[in-house]
Structure formats: structure tokens, C-alpha cells
Amino acid sequence: MQRQIPMFIVFVSGLTMIVDYFFPRVPYIQGAREIFLNWGRIALTFAMILGIMNLLMSNLRKVALRKAGWIYNVILLGSFALTFYFAVQYKMVPSGNTFITHKGTDMGSSGTMSFASKIFLDVYTPLSGTIFSLVAFFIASAAFRAFRAKNIEAILLLSSAIVVMLGSIPFGDSLFAWLGLEHILGHRNFSWLSTQIQQIPMSAAQRAINFGVAFGMVFMSIKILTGIDRSYFGGGGE
């Protein structure tokens, strides 16, 4: 029973969505769809509370038990409380363009804004950008380690990577001219070569993988709707 009811819900709501998609004039179908969508929205809102409660409880527990690194849990709880307080007090996203009132030229550098907005712009934005910028450093270290001309395939990969990298920056074409390669390839340069690599072999490979992904997705969806695959909510599939 514990498994039949969820499967029944899957089937009925899935069928509603499918019927609505193909036969939108079926009586009451749009209303039924709306009911499911609204239930979904309500459920998600409550699920957010669940997430927050889980976050608070697990961190409080670590602080109470003085687990290793508990000071980080204190920082997390403090930041959470502070942001929550100011967001509720001043409204994180008030109506109108008052969220950021730019008197200066750069975001967050000046102007009147609520403290919650300041947290977003002066704390969250640079932190988020910093973490994302790590990609550049990791690309450098991964490239150093992985791009070794060990065999023909690796040489092809390596040379295409260098061409694409040089093709995307203005230095590349200057280097191309300096090396005198323009005469060989007839007024073409790294930008041209880079575009060719990206438009032809790379695009073809992308499409092939995308086709496979699309089929996988369609069949996985059918398997879920028909209950063939149930492992995503605990066993069943095995």
C-alpha cells in the first residue's frame, strides 16, 4: 500500500498532464491541471520550510555537541539570522526600483539601499563571484595536468584546445600574423580556425550526445510514469 498510493498519484497526475497537453478541450482538464500545479506550489513552499528546519537543526546539534569545526556552524547560524532579520524587516525585494538606487556608477558602491540589499550586493555577490572564479584557477591546474601529448588523440585534443583558446582572444590573431601563418591559410587566422572547430566537429559531437540524452530522458520519463522504474524513491527498481 505504501508503494501503490504514490504510484497511483504518479499515474493520475501524469495522465492529467498528458491529456491536457494533447487534448486541451477535454472538459475540466485544465482545472485538474491547475489543481495539481497549485498543490505542487504549496508543497514546495512547505518543503522550503523543511529544508530550513533541517539546516537549523543539524547546525544547532553540531554546535551543542561541540563537533569539530563547530565555529563554522555558529557563523552559518549567525549569518542566517542576520540576513533573515533584515530581509523581513526591510523587505528583501520591495516593489519598484528602490532595490538598488544607483547614484554612483558601480553596483553597490554608493546610493541609498536597504541593509538587506547591501548584504546581497556587498557580501553575497562578491562571495558568489569568488567561488565561480575558482573555475579559472582549476582550469589552469587541470590543463597543466591533463593536456599531455601522450598519443595521437591527445595531440589532437591539445592542439584544438590551444587553437580555440587563442582564437577567442585578440592576441591570437596577432600571433598568427607574426608567425606568418596567414600566408599559408590565405588570410585566415586563429579566430577562423577556432570557429571552424567549434561549428563543425564539436557541434556534431554535441548533437550526437544530445540525441542520446533526449532519448534517455524520454524513456526514463515513460518508465517513471508507467511505474517500471521506481528506484528513485527507494528500491523498487531492484
Partner: peptide, 21 residues
């Protein structure tokens, strides 16, 4: 800055291969 960063990465790739060989 982006161009310089790209050149640094290329330089590391070349350097890595020189060490490898």
C-alpha cells in the same frame, strides 16, 4: 585580463608537455 589569463593557461600546457617529454 582574460587574454592574459588564456595565455598563462596555454603557457602552462606547453610547460607541462615540456616536463612530460
Amino acid at each position: 585580463a582574460l587574454s592574459v589569463a588564456n595565455l598563462v593557461v596555454i603557457a602552462f600546457i606547453v610547460f607541462g608537455n615540456l616536463i612530460y617529454f
